[in-house]
Design a protein around this nucleic acid. Structure first.
Lengths: 211, 211, 211, 211
DNA sequence: GATGAATGAGTATTCATTCAT
DNA sequence: CATGAATGAATACTCATTCAT
């Protein structure tokens, strides 16, 4: 569950050997993320990405063999950013309800920073892209690994051997709550944070007020 | 919270006067649901729906003025089915953990019957369709109304005046857990049902073993 | 040039033998004229005509084998109405400039009564309908025949043997002036009538002020 | 009346940067003019234009955002050609009947070169295209401006202050005569030119035989 | 006879992708 | 290496026409 997988770069048509190429790839991926987050799948076209990146469509295809591989790269980058949040919590010194509060805050923050992109990548990924996303499961694996470690430190009622399963449950529940709140635009209502903390602490059986 | 809205039929171009047409409309909507669930938004085309329904594209457009209205009809039908589940639980005689178990079972069942469709309709609705979907919020309103009533009956720790907020939290959390399980294909692992029951009972503060 | 051709009815799929049928045909043709005049070629569809006539599309096709034959019928009816104007002038007792004034007034009036229909039928007839319109030339022939007779009575400078040619010239010139005025919406500006009278009287060489 | 407006290029989706594209645009517009002139509005489809131009439909839409803008371009080009004729007469050194003869000859010539196109563009413009054609009135304004200037030089009977009105009358009358002759295919009968010259000279009150 | 449901070829338009310059 | 012009399969939607009821 805690397997660490190096965040492999997506399949590139040409492995950029020169500095300029690497920069171009990054510019394109960032432009892609902007376009996707702002416009959604429907209006996400390779030509728009190229325009937003200030490169020609030909150049884009020099680095990404097709649209799917560009999506893959955007996704990889975003998932890496999300992982960071969990890594931070994992390495945090906090304990008990304090740790839960930090976790919840960070997760809400991730959704707030680039809400369009996050929603679109995590919730609306069209079928046609899910094939090649073994990548996704690698990230998910690592993601849940961190989660499991955190939950392990929170355990009171839950026996340690079930930490993995509990981690998935909590992760998914929190995901659902935040995702639906984002959809309704209530991500920053005060009750949300409190509600999630209560949900988790009661589930793992620790005191809600404790540190 | 318990507002009842009559499940208005979607805008039809032509109100079917003959029996034949009514049947055709149903066939098209069902074919549409199949196509959408199986193929996702990307490959959901009006021509494919017509082909799947065994009617000509012209017939489809005789009843649905455009693609969006077909989506609306598919969505309305599915949401009505979902509502039914909650209505059943709401009118159930069960109490406490028994009620929770029933609720969880039913919700998992809904997702199992047509997993693709449910996912696609609830999570992946592209921006272009969201305009006319005031319908959606009507259903959501009613949906959460039932939820609130059920949660109200479960209350132990939660003060009654917070039943609404708690209902949303539970609904979203359960939604997230089931949705992610469906995505992973683990909807029928034994732990899922148990985990959800535990999550809910602990949150509302009732005994997990009680009837 | 003065050939009289009986205003043959357009090709009908079924020759209506019963009173009811004849009435239905008329209703459809009138509805067609309304639709065509109001909406133009673009939005002139057989289904709209049927609806406007209060009959089913099936009934329309019982009387008109195809769209073109319906157009033909509408056109025939309108041209017959136009002919009437010239016949009136032809049989008028007026002479000289008085006759010219009457002619101009009537022609402007024709364009004013159902401007949309007239414009659309005379100016915008799409190519695909011009094939079967031998009918048209019959009417045109008769139309110009009347014109020639009128011009013959106006002659001062023009030698009688050129009356036919002069008639066509005047007819076309007046047509152009009125048609363009209609397009600009200046059909009822006072100068138009006067201008046309001057144009004609000077051309045929009679006094503009005479009776 | 003599307002000079720069003949603005129609809205192009992409301003052609390379020589190749400029050529393509021209090829498409010319093919469009051919198709429109030969087939009329009904059968004027973007796909046919692309085929006639020997380019793919995609290329057509690279330069013209929609069908209407293509029509606009065809129209602009043709109107510019027509304007040229009047400009030539306007700058001509001829006087009196000689000037009239030149004018009539040139106008007949314009109609002869591409008779279908001229008819279709000037008379049959469907409603759906008339919105964006403020362009049209600009051209018409300039067109009539030249006409007024020419008529002004012809005046004998007509007082100078009525030159504008007379110009419109003559322009429309000549237009009608030529247009109807073109429709009948009698554009090149010897009497037509003579008839028009007579019509104009008598109207403006100059000698028909004079230079 | 009348009805209107069903048909499907045809139309405008988009967008991922290629390749000549 | 970069460019952007060119491609064409695919998509939503219309409407003249047929035919079972």
């Amino acid at each position: 569950m805690s397997t660490r997988v190096p965040p492999a770069l997506p399949t590139l048509r040409r492995r950029p050997k020169q500095a300029r190429s690497r920069v171009t790839v990054e510019i394109i991926v960032e432009a892609g993320a902007r376009v996707l987050g702002a416009l959604g799948w429907d209006k996400f076209t390779t030509n728009k990405v190229a325009a937003a990146a200030g490169v020609s469509i030909g150049s884009l295809y020099q680095y990404f063999p097709d649209k799917a591989s560009l999506v893959e790269a955007i996704r990889a980058k975003h998932l890496a950013d999300c992982l960071l949040v969990l890594r931070i919590c994992h390495e945090s010194d906090l304990r008990g309800a304090e740790l839960v509060r930090q976790l919840v805050s960070e997760l809400i923050a991730v959704h707030s920073t680039s809400p369009g992109l996050h929603r679109v990548l995590l919730d609306e990924l069209p079928e046609r892209y899910s094939d090649r996303l073994s990548l996704e499961s690698r990230y998910e694996h690592e993601y849940l690994g961190y989660y499991a470690a955190i939950v392990g430190r929170l355990l009171a009622v839950i026996p340690p051997e079930n930490a993995d399963r509990a981690a998935i449950l909590i992760s998914d529940a929190v995901d659902g709550v935040i995702h639906n709140a984002a959809r309704r635009g209530t991500l920053h209502e005060p009750g949300l944070h409190a509600g999630l903390v209560t949900l988790i602490t009661r589930y793992v059986g620790i005191s809600e007020t404790g540190g």
